[in-house]
């Protein structure tokens, strides 16, 4: 009797595991398929310049304030922490370069992408999700307009373009924040701060950070659009789509950041 019950429980566990694996794999497949479709329709007419510019404004311009704030404060807090640690070894002059390197390689692309995910990714998923549940996406199909080309491609291209620019802004303001704190509060030498940053932060560090941010832009746009595009279940479904878009994008950014770093450095 007991063995039979144990077997049934074991089979149930296997079933649940199988269902979960199946749903995760089909989700990954769906996201990848949407990426392929978007890539294909990027090169098909009509080119929707107006929609692309609108998305540039939404993803890029409207995110610049939040990126400015987080950039300055991240630079400042890193300078504060770094200066205290380096002081123990009498190496305060390394504060600038250490902040510069962390910003260029990791913090710039990752924090900018997380900020954009929270602000624009959730909004993309919610907007497309609402369009799905109110049949607006079906209406596009019925009017012989490809919804992937109309809705996803402009968002993807705008994110690919704006993420590196926002990351560059984050890096620049982060180092300004570090400079202001380091020089005016902690009393570091301004000339050596600038010279050390220029000397120790390579172009490659900046370049790799920007390449990462392009990749993160793709993750944010495709995951968020996928979640919205295939949302079901009314208002609750739209809310779920927005939440899942943020969670999946954020986790994917952090996980892929490790692999990108391992590959590029």
């Amino acid at each position: 009797m007991e063995t039979g019950a144990n077997n049934r429980n074991f089979i149930r566990i296997l079933e649940i595991l199988g269902e979960k694996t199946n749903s995760v794999l089909s989700e990954i497949g769906g996201i990848f398929l949407l990426f392929l479709k978007s890539f294909y329709y990027t090169f098909q007419k009509p080119f929707r310049v107006g929609l692309f510019l609108k998305q540039i404004e939404f993803i890029g311009v409207q995110s610049s304030f939040i990126v400015t704030l987080t950039g300055i404060f991240t630079g400042m807090v890193f300078a504060l922490q770094g200066a205290h640690a380096f002081k123990l070894f009498g190496a305060e002059n390394l504060t600038g370069p250490s902040v510069g390197l962390s910003l260029a390689r990791e913090l710039g692309p990752v924090l900018t992408s997380l900020m954009v995910t929270g602000r624009a990714g959730s909004a993309m998923a919610a907007e497309l999700g609402t369009m799905r549940v109110t049949e607006q996406i079906d209406a596009l199909y019925a009017m012989a307009i490809n919804p992937v080309q109309y809705l996803v491609v402009p968002r993807m291209l705008a994110a690919l373009l704006m993420l590196p620019l926002l990351t560059a802004l984050f890096n620049f303001l982060g180092i300004i924040g570090a400079y202001l704190l380091g020089v005016h509060v902690l009393g570091l030498n301004p000339e050596s701060f600038i010279n050390d940053v220029i000397y120790l932060v390579d172009f490659k560090d900046l370049f790799v950070g920007l390449v990462k941010s392009i990749f993160f832009g793709m993750i944010i746009s495709i995951v968020s659009c996928y979640k919205g595009f295939y949302a079901t279940g009314g208002a609750k479904g739209v809310g779920r789509a927005a939440t899942e878009a943020v969670v999946i994008s954020s986790v994917s950014i952090l996980v892929s950041d490790y692999f990108l770093t391992a590959m590029m450095f």
Binding site: M131, E135, Q136, D138, A139, A142
Partner: peptide
Amino acid sequence: VLFQSGALFD
């Protein structure tokens, strides 16, 4: 096509 919800672009 007239969709059930109207499906106007909001």
